[in-house]
């Protein structure tokens, strides 16, 4: 019984993935005639090649763009949230708790809806449709989770560390930089895993803030653009989806353990 349930769960989860992989190598005719079959003698790389070399939405360029966005968001997020988390975690006053509350409210704000009034702020700042504007908003969306993780983690570090640094004449900035930040590695790793997945899978924000006008496509927005018009041509749909998914699946297989522990920490710390 247990085995049967497990097998059923595995089947339900894996069949869509199987279809995604297999059909990326098949012709439209083979896909419609036998979606689940593998016509070994007629498999071809042509459609994947066509998706790769599509001049309108170069998926290889989208990989680079999205990866750079992920790096930028992670660096910026760490740079602003870790120092603030240090002060809040060590602070005992009401204003520290209030400030933390302000960040944690963000956990419940739907980013897809928040983005609409954000457009006005970005327009006012002259940042609408720019990479800077996108990165600033995307980074802001990571702050609630980062603060949540970092504050909880710093609280587990003994205060004696701070005292020792103070005796040695270090102020809070030096203490943070030399003593606390180097010890934050596990929490930073968790945040990086979560935010990288977040940026890679985000669709609404790049679509709305960068927009088709900027000609900068992330993986999700380029797939949306590529598939949108041809949703019944499966030789376009499956290869594009496979190209979008391939790098994350590699990332997933390599880092599965870290993602699992990151997810758990992200949801339960504090």
């Amino acid at each position: 019984m247990t085995k049967l349930l497990k097998a059923l769960a595995a089947l339900v989860m894996l069949v869509p993935g199987y279809l995604l992989v297999v059909n990326a190598f098949k012709s439209q005719d083979d896909i419609t005639r036998s979606p689940f079959g593998i016509p070994f003698d007629r498999l071809s790389l042509d459609h994947l090649g066509a998706a790769l070399s599509n001049p309108d939405f170069a998926i290889t360029k989208a990989y680079v763009v999205t990866a750079l966005f992920a790096v930028a968001v992670n660096v910026l997020s760490l740079a602003v949230s870790a120092p603030a988390a240090y002060v809040i975690a060590r602070g005992t006053r009401l204003r520290h708790r209030t400030l933390l509350g302000l960040f944690l409210v963000g956990l419940f704000i739907p980013s897809q809806v928040l983005v609409i009034p954000v457009i006005y702020v970005l327009k006012y700042l002259g940042l609408m449709g720019t990479v800077t504007g996108f990165l600033l908003y995307e980074t802001t969306l990571t702050l609630p989770v980062s603060m949540f993780l970092y504050v909880a983690y710093i609280k587990t570090l003994p205060r004696e560390l701070d005292e020792a640094a103070r005796v040695d004449g270090a102020g809070p900035i030096v203490t943070f930089w030399r003593v606390i930040l180097p010890l934050m590695r596990p929490a930073v790793a968790t945040a990086v895993v979560l935010h990288t997945i977040g940026v890679w899978t985000d669709f609404v924000n790049p679509q709305i803030i960068l927009g088709p006008g900027s000609s900068l496509y992330t993986v999700t927005t380029s797939v949306y653009a590529a598939i949108g018009r041809y949703s019944t041509d499966f030789t376009v749909v499956y290869p594009n989806l496979l190209m979008a998914v391939a790098p994350v699946l590699v990332f997933f297989v390599l880092l599965q353990r870290n993602i699992v522990s990151g997810l758990t920490a992200g949801a339960t710390k504090g």
Binding site: A9, A10, M13, L241, F252
Partner: peptide, 19 residues
């Protein structure tokens, strides 16, 4: 196997299931 959709993201999942 049960949580790989998490890294694929909702927009790709939507397209895959619509296919």
């Amino acid at each position: 196997v049960v949580f790989y959709p998490y890294v694929i993201g909702p927009i790709i999942i939507g397209f895959l299931w619509s296919a």
